[in-house]
Design a protein around this nucleic acid. Sequence first.
DNA 1: ATTTGATTCAACCATATGGTTGAATGATAG
DNA 2: CTATCATTCAACCATATGGTTGAATCAAAT
Lengths: 107, 107
Amino acid sequence: MVESNLALDLIFGALADATRRDILKRVSREEQTISELAQPYATSLAAIAKHVSVLEKAGLVTKRRNGKEKLVRVTPEAIEVAAAHLSEYEKVWGDRFDTLEKLLAEK
Amino acid sequence: MVESNLALDLIFGALADATRRDILKRVSREEQTISELAQPYATSLAAIAKHVSVLEKAGLVTKRRNGKEKLVRVTPEAIEVAAAHLSEYEKVWGDRFDTLEKLLAEK
DNA sequence: ATTTGATTCAACCATATGGTTGAATGATAG
DNA sequence: CTATCATTCAACCATATGGTTGAATCAAAT
């Protein structure tokens, strides 16, 4: 019996798309409107709004109204849930953080 | 311009399914054959073999032949790539590990 | 060499996903 | 109140995904 854990389905599903990861990276730096977010991409505004909606349903971002626009910002908690989950698949705990540090140092 | 990063598409895409996460958890404990992996689920062997194949293409597991069967095992490196990537979305570094520890303690 | 067991492949089906366009809604500015 | 800007909704299309079954492959055992 597999416990579905819809939350993780949605979180990882949302992260499985490059455009959405890009949006997430951008809103993790600062709040952005939907229109601002849509700017750099060669797709319709509606398509980007859908991507934001997917991120929102996964709990990775939240939206708040500001006048006629809506500001999108990251929700670090949801990302931490995903990060914590990944640790379940790793046998050696010490190694994990070593490698993580190494990978981050490379950037 | 969004750099596609196929590797992450595949990794997060693979993790977006509860059955695959379950398989990954099981092989992270010890190597398992495809048939062993298929046992607990109410689906066909072929369906599970496909899931394993998705995990394999994402680099999350590897297969090695052992006589007439194939043993599946986890590839911690790929999981670390995903974990490292998640950190990019988090502004507050200190918080991250605090919350991670807290979440793990709860299990 | 044949049979048996384990895995893979191929064809197919239903639903999900990511994209489009055009119309509808919300909120501010004239 | 109406025009305008920002976002959302609805209908639609093409392709991807997860599942099925039956045939094909690969490796051991008889």
